[in-house]
Nucleic acid binder design. Structure first.
Length: 445
RNA sequence: UCCUCAGUAGCUCAAUGGCAGAGCGUGCGGCUGUUAACCGCAAUGUUGUUGGUUCGAGUCCAACCUGAGGAGCCA
């Protein structure tokens, strides 16, 4: 009797005869013993073949299988504290095996490889333990995002990817031909979300977005996923309350469900357990003062130059990194100068040069994972802002309409999935958080 | 677009201006407990491209190509 099972659940199958349909991750041998690391997509486990038990013919064929050969192995599960794997501590004594294909010259070995080589082989690299673990964490984070919002009264209303003009008027967009007209790949669904909340109250969109900026850093992709919740009758404080509950839920859920993967990635789990509300909230004014103090305290001339800032300047990466080092949780920075933010943000009461924006900066140098704001609610102020930013008014008529017909205070934010995955996984480059990342120099595979 | 660094065997990297090397991987052989096993043997090169300096260039010079990290911009 054979029990269908997955490697993930091997602990519950000790003493049973099982069949693994998978691939050969690695193998080694010692005389009449052969150790096969098998993976099936859910985990990795060791299968042990003993020559006198399986016979010379099968033993020889298994011994000469190349890495990533496909095979089906049947045998009995037993506990063995020394057996490696995910989960470790169990192995299968091989009784039968059917080889589907012997893979020859698999390019990725267990030793080190360079980034370019690995990215050229991204279609294969995904099979490696680390990449596999990151993608499992990613799926869990996506699920947590959707669960949280669906459980808190949000409707998932989709927004278009093909758009007639730049939503924010700032980023560089990918241009496409739309029946002989110019169209652009969406950089955000936010403006459409604002229309949707007036119909549904609380909504979110969650999908890919595109930025054609020639950014070439460990934090940027040309195509990335963003979840954008938008809420009617939410002010800036409501927004921050939601964001910290949301982010904490994502982190804690991932910790519960993917601790093994995070440990495999070498993540400091204590730092993640600490991500619970409340998060520190500091004003832009205070942030500038803090950065200036950090700059005054450093003797490094390069740092001194990078950290130069005056009120009114937007933060660069070095500013964010140094600022977040002062906290052991994500930190809110609110009340940025209107001049460095998008046109649609509500002015601060009594301080028109400041807007009701808030960014959430991840700790440990991971930078901005959320950008959000309370949106402008007055149609005339909005129209003036559109003119000031020299945006084509005709494309924004419908957006202004939202303020004419039952305008209300409302807020929303966008959370970058890949940056969040990078932070939670503790990996140093965003390209590993996307199965097939699109970057400045890479469109393939 | 700008700054910095890199490009040599399938991969990761060595090589004072003077014979092109090692480890890993691969192939063959040995071993009943491997964990990136170990031991023995073997095969593997258009040194990114083009031009220049030199008796002689992987090495020095110039341009270009490709990639990486960072700045700007942003999630």
């Amino acid at each position: 009797m054979t029990t269908p099972f997955t490697i993930e659940t091997i602990a519950a199958h000790v003493g049973e005869r099982v069949t693994v349909k998978g691939w050969l991750y690695a193998s080694t041998h010692k005389g009449k013993l052969l150790f096969l690391q098998l993976r099936d997509g859910t985990g990795i486990t060791q299968a042990v073949a003993f020559r006198p038990e399986v016979g010379d013919e099968l033993f020889e064929s298994l011994a000469h299988l190349g890495q990533e050969s496909s095979l089906i192995v049947t045998g009995t599960v037993r506990a063995n504290p020394k057996a490696p794997g995910i989960p470790a501590g169990y192995e299968i004594g091989v009784e039968e095996a059917h080889i589907l294909q012997n893979a020859v010259d698999y390019p990725i070995g267990p030793k080190e490889h360079g980034v370019e080589f690995l990215m050229d082989n991204r279609h294969l690299w995904l099979r490696s333990k680390q990449q596999w673990a990151i993608m499992r964490v990613r799926t869990t984070i996506k699920r947590a995002i959707i669960d949280y919002l669906d459980d808190h009264g949000f409707y998932n209303i989709d927004t278009p990817i093909l758009t007639p003009s730049a939503a924010e008027g700032t980023s560089t967009l990918f241009e496409v031909d739309y029946f002989d007209e110019k169209a652009y790949l969406a950089q955000t669904g936010q403006l459409y979300n604002e229309a949707n909340i007036m119909a549904f109250g609380k909504v979110y969109c969650f999908g890919p977005t595109f930025r054609a900026e020639k950014s070439k850093t460990r934090r940027h992709l040309a195509e990335f996923w963003m979840v954008e919740p938008e809420m009617a009758y939410y002010d800036l404080e409501d927004l921050m309350n939601l964001e910290e509950e949301f982010v904490s839920y994502i982190v804690q859920t991932t910790l519960e469900q993917r601790a093994a993967e995070l440990e495999l990635l070498g993540r400091d789990l204590a730092a993640l357990r600490n991500v619970i509300p409340p998060f520190p909230r500091i004003s832009y004014d205070e942030a500038v003062e803090r950065i200036q103090a950090i700059r005054a305290a450093t003797d490094d001339p390069i740092q001194k130059e990078l950290l130069a800032i005056e009120w009114g300047d937007d933060f660069g990466s070095p500013h964010e990194t140094e600022l977040t080092k002062q906290f052991d949780k994500p930190v809110f920075v609110y009340g940025y100068p209107s001049a460095v933010k998008a046109f649609y943000m509500e002015p601060w009461p009594g301080r028109p040069e400041v807007c009701k924006s808030v960014d959430l900066l991840a700790p440990e140098g991971y930078g901005e994972i959320i950008g959000g704001s309370e949106r402008m609610s007055d149609p005339d102020v909005l129209l003036a802002a559109i003119h000031r930013h020299e945006l084509p008014e005709v494309n924004y008529q419908w957006y202004i309409d939202l303020r004419r017909y039952g305008g209300v205070p409302h807020s929303g934010f966008g959370l970058g999935l890949e940056r969040t995955v990078a932070w939670i996984c503790g990996i140093d480059h965003i390209r590993q958080t996307s199965p097939f990342p699109r970057t400045l120099n890479r469109l393939t595979p």
